[in-house]
Amino acid sequence: MDVWCDALGSWLETTIGELSVSASTTKPTTSSASYGGDGEWLQTRPGEKCCIRVPAVDTGGAYSVVEIVSTPGDSTPMHIHSNEDEYFIILEGTALIALGDKTFDAAAGATIFLPRNIPHAWGNASNSSLRFLGICTPGGVEDALRVIARGGVSDLVAFSAKFGVEIVGPLLIQPEGHSPQ
C-alpha cells in the first residue's frame, strides 16, 4: 500500500504540478488501513457509488481524489468542467471514455487525462464492475457528490452549473430501449 501511495503522490506531483503532498514514513506496528476523507460510500445514481478518499479541504483546494465503482450499463452524460481538469486511474474493469470527438476503451492500469473545457463522458459498457480513481485539480467538485447522494437535486442541469459543470449531451451508454435525446 505504501509503495502505491508513494507512486500516486509522485504521479500527482509530476502530472498535476507542484502540490503539497506529504507522506508519513512511520510504519504502523499492527495491521491497519487508512481511508482518506470521510470513507463513506455515497450512492450517487443507481449504477454508481463513490467514496471521497481525499477531499479538497485536505489539500488546500489543490486537488481531490474520489474512488468510483460503476455497474455494467452505468454512464455519465456528455459534460464540460469549466473549473477543473480530471484524471482517471482505472483500477478494475474497462471504462468507455468519450473525449471531444473520440471514444475509446481504457482498461485497468490506464491513466486518462480529461482537460477542462473539453466535452467528455465515461461509462461502463462491460459485463463486470468498473472501479477507478477520479482526481480533480483543483478540487471542490466532489462536494456535489454529497448533495446528489442525499437526494437534494431536482434539476441536475441547474445544480451542475453551480459547480461549473455543463451537461451538453446524452448519457454515453443508453439504457436498453431508449435512444439518445
Rank of each mutant, 00 (worst) to 15 (best):
S129R: 09
D143C: 11
I173A: 06
E13F: 11
V69L: 06
T26A: 13
L145V: 10
E13I: 13
D58G: 10
L171G: 05
L145E: 02
G47Q: 00
H120Y: 08
Y35K: 10
P72V: 12
F104G: 07
V3A: 15
I80S: 01
F163I: 07
L99P: 01
G73P: 02
S75W: 01
Y35W: 10
T44H: 02
T15W: 03
I97E: 00
S10E: 15
C5H: 10
H120E: 04
R45M: 13
P175Y: 04
M1V: 13
Q174I: 13
S70R: 00
Y63F: 15
V153E: 00
E13P: 05
L91D: 05
S10Q: 15
H120M: 06
P115F: 04
I112D: 00
K49G: 11
S34P: 04
P170D: 14
A108S: 14
I167L: 12
P180H: 06
L133Q: 01
L172W: 01
F104Y: 10
R45H: 12
I80G: 03
S128A: 15
I97P: 00
G47A: 09
N127L: 13
L172I: 12
M1S: 15
R45C: 13
S64L: 05
L171S: 07
I135P: 02
L42I: 10
S24P: 01
S22D: 14
V153T: 04
K102P: 07
L130A: 05
D58Q: 13
L114S: 07
A149D: 03
L96M: 09
T14N: 07
H81G: 11
T137I: 05
A62T: 06
A33D: 11
L19D: 04
P77M: 11
I68N: 01
H81F: 10
V57D: 09
R150H: 07
G152Y: 05
T14I: 10
